[in-house]
């Protein structure tokens, strides 16, 4: 049941989150999802643009969506970065609102008809592959590894754009983890904010936000946290050394991409998982 999707990596996957790209591509390949990278893609604009130039923030992703629709003639694009996914999902909706459409197509330089579906990392496994198919492909199931599935902000909010069924208590990532043999625990912070880009300027605040949610995951019994966003992964992973300094009894918890979890269970080549790139050692839980 091979399936063809356009693919938008985004800047992080070609920089600080290479392991997300390599594990995502390896799993897609093994699961017979063919990915076609959008030619000469540009940045989605991220928070910097939508808090400075609203029109440009909608135009940048719409420009890419028009390429997928008209040049590539595909009906869906896979976007593993939750931040990029959110900008694309927002533009996909707002570019079709009559009061904005005119200005957006003026800036983009062409019409976009809104026919492309925008899929995040969880959607690809949950919907494009499908839970049954995924389960059937698992050759090395986890033995009930207790994971806390972390969605953060941008996978589900705002639901008008992300089309998430339950933005406050999503469960698709848990369903994917379960299909891999994990035991997803229930916890209180799965859609809490990690502080995002403020790590660069309000470091102390971000460490506090992260500590609060890591502590909750631990208290609820998690052995690892699974995520689907490069910025969340970086914040949760890089702050633990500082947390340990302030709290000597802190027991570090690995922060793993969903694509790495899938890759381990369907046994893609280990070097493609990029586990060595994670800062808190994940080898024990991924063994």
């Amino acid at each position: 049941m091979s399936k063809l999707l356009a693919y938008y990596p985004g800047c992080s996957l070609h920089g600080s989150a290479e392991e997300l790209e390599s594990s995502f591509k390896a799993t897609a390949d093994a699961l017979e999802i063919e990915l076609k990278e959008i030619p000469q893609w540009s940045c989605c604009g991220n928070t910097a643009v939508h808090s400075a130039n609203r029109l440009l923030a909608l135009a940048l992703p719409t420009h890419e969506l028009a390429k997928v629709e008209q040049d590539m003639q595909l009906d869906a694009v896979a976007i593993p970065c939750a931040g990029c996914f959110n900008r694309f999902a927002t533009s996909n909706v707002e570019s079709q609102e009559p009061e904005k459409a005119g200005h957006i197509s003026d800036v983009v330089g062409r019409e976009y008809n809104g026919s492309v579906a925008v899929h995040n990392l969880v959607d690809v496994y949950h919907d494009d592959v499908g839970l049954e198919e995924l389960k059937a492909r698992v050759t090395r199931p986890f033995q009930g590894l207790k994971v806390a599935c972390y969605y953060g902000c941008l996978l589900t909010r705002p639901p008008k754009a992300t089309l998430a069924g339950d933005p406050e208590y999503p469960t698709h990532m848990e369903e994917v983890a379960e299909a891999l043999g994990c035991n997803p625990i229930d916890w209180n912070c799965k859609t809490d904010c990690c502080g995002s880009g403020l790590a660069l300027c309000e470091t102390a605040m971000v460490i506090e936000l992260v500590h609060r949610l890591l502590r909750d995951a631990r208290a609820c019994g998690a052995e690892a946290i699974v995520c689907a966003c490069p910025l969340c992964q970086m914040n949760l992973d890089t702050t633990q050394r500082e947390i340990a300094k302030a709290h000597p009894d802190w027991e570090p918890i690995p922060i793993i991409y969903l694509s790495q979890l899938v890759g381990r269970a369907i046994e893609v080549e280990e070097s493609m998982l990029g586990l060595k790139k994670l800062i808190v050692d994940a080898r024990a839980v991924m063994a």
Partner: peptide
Amino acid sequence: VLRLNADSIKRWGRLYE
């Protein structure tokens, strides 16, 4: 930070982390 971020995108077409 946001200004520098936007500048980088404008300069390269992608964010240069």
